[in-house]
């Protein structure tokens, strides 16, 4: 009987060892499969951000697909502006500035929905159907529509319509820029998720403590210009508002590589070195 008891004790011990070893084995296996640990470290960093009083709101872990885009800046707006009615258009530096002879009254609460209806009319705004309302870029006095491209939106001053409103909820004028022949330069590739973008921005020390992340959006922004061609990349545009500042700042993260995109100076430099003789 004693021997049997010893056997049982041994059996229990060995089963315990087996479970432990198997756990270790599984852990090692999962180490080899990519991205397993990433989910953990991501949530850890998000927590770290919250500890730094950074209000991030709810973040999405979803990745999506996007393209490298190109568009051409040309004078098509000038050649078409004859068909606009009830306005005096001026064409200056690839931009169409137009003032309405009779201000157009729009809805007080939802000016964008009134404008959106008018956008389909080519005598109101040229190529209006190629633009979509952007809540993030609009303010009470200025309603912004941005150009659509390949299931996405272009955030660039070279592809948008900005309507100026007066105090009586009327559009008095607008400024339009337009890129022609927007097309993909390469097959689609995967983009990083919103969470990742914020984490990288945080790790680049671009989000100060006590900051609120107001909004973030995946949009196309300009990478470089070559002559009349513009190259756009998918970008996480992240708007942050530090507590002690009244202004919203825009930060940009390259959605393919996760690299930070510094403001226009660098883009200019890039563009110059390409067209230069080097």
């Amino acid at each position: 009987m004693n021997f049997k008891r010893i056997e049982i004790i041994f059996l229990v011990t060995f089963i315990a060892i087996d479970i432990f070893l198997f756990g270790m084995f599984e852990q090692n296996m999962s180490m080899q499969t990519e991205n397993v640990s990433q989910g953990d470290s991501d949530s850890k960093i998000v927590k770290e951000m919250k500890d730094d009083q950074i209000n991030v709101g709810s973040l999405s872990n979803k990745t999506s697909f996007a393209y490298y885009l190109s568009g051409t800046q040309n004078d098509t707006l000038r050649s078409q502006m004859g068909q606009l009615l009830n306005q005096t258009p001026h064409y200056v530096g690839h931009e169409l500035d137009s003032e309405f002879k009779e201000p157009v009254t729009v809805s007080q609460n939802n000016p964008q929905s009134s404008i959106a209806k008018l956008m389909d009319n080519p005598t109101f705004v040229l190529y209006g159907d190629q633009y979509a309302y952007s809540k993030d870029l609009s303010t009470a006095k200025s309603i912004v529509f941005v150009q659509k491209a390949m299931n996405g939106l272009i955030y660039s001053t070279e592809a948008q319509v900005r309507f100026n409103l007066n105090a009586n909820h009327q559009i008095v004028s607008y400024t339009q820029s337009y890129l022609q022949d927007v097309k993909s330069l390469r097959e689609k590739s995967e983009t990083i998720s919103e969470t990742r973008a914020l984490i990288w921005l945080y790790q680049y020390n671009e989000i100060p403590n006590n900051t609120k992340v107001v909004w973030s959006k995946l949009a196309y922004t300009k990478l470089l210009s070559i002559d009349t061609d513009r190259v756009f990349i998918p970008t996480w545009v992240i708007a942050i508002k530090p507590q002690n500042s009244p202004q919203v700042q825009l930060k940009k993260i390259n959605a393919f590589t996760g690299g930070i995109i510094k403001e226009t100076n660098e883009n200019l430099k890039n563009a110059q070195s390409i067209s230069g003789d080097n």
Partner: peptide
């Protein structure tokens, strides 16, 4: 290689 294609250009 140290140089690798990154962004397509029209």
């Amino acid at each position: 290689t140290l140089d690798n294609p990154e962004v397509p250009i029209p």
